[in-house]
């Protein structure tokens, strides 16, 4: 870890309690974000991307989840060991998350103004005991202007259901940037919207990040988006990081069989029929396969893959792979 490191996740395990045991979803996630860096996180649905991100803010469903092992170090401090006050400070001033589905992420029975207002209030409430209503309103309207919302004053009096999907996502982004943050987490910020709106939202995010010099973690299952938007990409499979590399390197020289499969399964506009894809499905988290979690679907699997999960191994500068193939 050097002084450029903003966030480092080390060997994070997260389990969810279900009837009949624990879903062992995250199985040793390692993840690093440097100051001002744009990091992509790709992987198929259900591989633990959102779980990893929610554990940074400690907003996993309470009571149903536990973290048996791991560290999440933000600016040199382990989030998992923070006091409640420190955690609230982290949430209100340092890190903010934009959710995948803006309709679910906004409270349906409160106005936009009430919701942004509270985010603004508690981001400044630590310094100022009494926050004036006028100031909250001005800051809220300014945040909406930042995301190019027309007529912010009126939007503040609207309820979420009176806005379109794209506008709702803009509102969510406005909440996250209403006060300056050091790290933005964008969880598939366009997936629930149609393609043109998705494009607008991504461009907006890119602009904000560049303007404010914020670090961003962009979760996506589109490799194209990751390539365009980020400096470095993590590829995740079934609760583990299987490969990470600078964006260019990853596309030029994918090593892990899963990364290769993922790249091969991108449909190409120039034709060639339906992409190959990866046979099989994400494993059962209640009884995950022994050793490497990808081994049941891997065409290169050897008996040794079932013994011990492979560790990340540096094959090039900043290019790590968790596969026995790469170590040979």
């Amino acid at each position: 870890m050097d002084d450029k490191t903003l966030l480092e996740i080390k060997d994070l395990h997260v389990w969810y309690k279900v009837y009949g045991g624990y879903l062992k979803v995250l199985h040793g996630v390692n993840f690093l974000v440097r100051k001002g860096e744009r990091v992509g996180l790709v992987g198929e649905a259900g591989c633990g991307k959102t779980t990893t991100m929610k554990s940074i803010l400690q907003i996993l469903p309470p009571g149903d989840s536990r973290i048996p092992k791991g560290e999440i170090i933000y600016k040199g401090k382990d989030i998992l060991k923070m006091s409640f006050g420190e955690l609230q400070r982290l949430r209100s001033k340092e890190v903010a998350m934009i959710f995948q589905d803006p309709t679910a992420a906004l409270n349906p029975v409160f106005t936009i103004g009430a919701q942004i207002g509270d985010v603004v209030r508690y981001s400044i409430a630590l310094e100022e005991k009494r926050v004036k209503k006028e100031k909250i309103k001005t800051l809220s309207a300014r945040a909406l202007k930042e995301v190019y919302m027309p007529d912010p004053e009126r939007i503040l009096t609207n309820y979420p259901f009176q806005l379109s999907g794209g506008m709702r996502q803009r509102v969510c982004i406005a909440m996250s940037i209403s006060s300056p943050r050091n790290l933005l987490i964008a969880d598939e910020p366009g997936t629930s919207l149609d393609v043109t709106i998705q494009d607008q939202i991504l461009r907006l995010l890119k602009e904000i990040v560049e303007k404010q010099g914020t670090s961003i973690i962009l979760i996506t299952h589109s490799l194209g988006v990751a390539r365009e938007m980020t400096d470095r990409i993590y590829v995740m499979y079934a609760g583990t990081i299987v490969e990470t590399a600078p964006a260019k390197d990853l596309f030029k020289n994918p090593v892990h069989p899963y990364t290769r499969g993922l790249l091969a399964s991108v449909p190409k506009i120039s034709g060639g029929g339906i992409a190959r894809g990866i046979p099989g499905r994400i494993p059962d988290y209640l009884n995950p396969p022994p050793g490497c979690r990808f081994q049941p679907r891997c065409e290169y699997a050897t008996p040794s893959c079932q013994e011990k999960p492979p560790q990340l191994f540096e094959i090039d500068k900043d290019h790590f792979v968790a596969c026995y193939l790469a170590q040979r």
Partner: peptide, 19 residues
């Protein structure tokens, strides 16, 4: 409703638990 994203989001923005 506790398991809804909007509650997770509100927690994530540092809004106090009682509120």
């Amino acid at each position: 409703n506790l398991s809804k994203d909007f509650i997770a989001a509100e927690r994530g923005y540092g809004i106090p638990e009682r509120r």
